[in-house]
Amino acid sequence: MAIIRSKDLVHEYIRRDEAGNVESIQTALDHVDLEVEPGQFISILGHNGSGKSTFAKHINALLTPSEGVLWVDGMNTSDDEYTFAVRQTAGMVFQNPDNQIIASVVDEDVAFAPENMGVPSDEIVQRVEKALKMVGMYKYRSHSPNKLSGGQKQRVAIAGVMAMQPKCIILDEPTAMLDPDGRAEVLRAVHDLNREKGITVILITHYMEEVVDSDFVYVMEKGKVIMKGKPRDIFTQVDELKSHGLDVPQVTMLAHELRKSGVPLPECILTRQELVASLAKIKNGGHE
């Protein structure tokens, strides 16, 4: 069974004037159908305003559909009864590392969610330790979050979600405000969670390089899913991606340009090893 499934999901932001009359309606999500199997690593790509963050908030029941349905582990998110169960099943990490750390000490922050859930004290201690070890932040447990780097703060935020023991974790542009080191740290932590703990991951991003290792990619624009497929299938459509204001990794771009100039390269080059090997084959083949 799919852990997350949306059917004809629509979300409208309705602006009202002072008298309560509708001033404008903005459709942020426009009939989105999406399905995620347990244990998958899914990426949602799109530029700002494409609706991807609105979608993320739906999975966490922070927003509920205007139309259509979204199920998280079989629970309908529109049903108030399930709100907290949904949030525990699908934990959410946000973009700004500073604005999601609540406590002034790392381990107290990680304890925040289990405390809210009413978990007994000795179990909280275990959960916090486990969660911090998962993201490699255990040795910083008594530090102040203010002294940590952006990447470290995001890892604390991930631990804060993992302490709820969710099946799925949604990351809404977790690396947008980080430097390259921080970005790599966070991605490594997320991939480890997926591989080693079997946590389902939904990564929302606008960085192409980050989705290369996903199982499946959705590309969103203007509230609609406009492309979906394995990363390889998505990246071969360089011109289409460009037309939506998204870019592709430099190596894929180079391969695409070379192919346009008549070099018979295969269609799905993602890494520089693949490119170099293919070029070598062509060059050596030409000599024989």
Partner: peptide, 16 residues
């Protein structure tokens, strides 16, 4: 962020 981590006021809260 607080809502996402199941914050619902002081009722039923435990402490680490």
């Amino acid at each position: 962020a607080m809502e996402a981590r199941c914050y619902n006021g002081g009722e039923g809260r435990t402490k680490m």
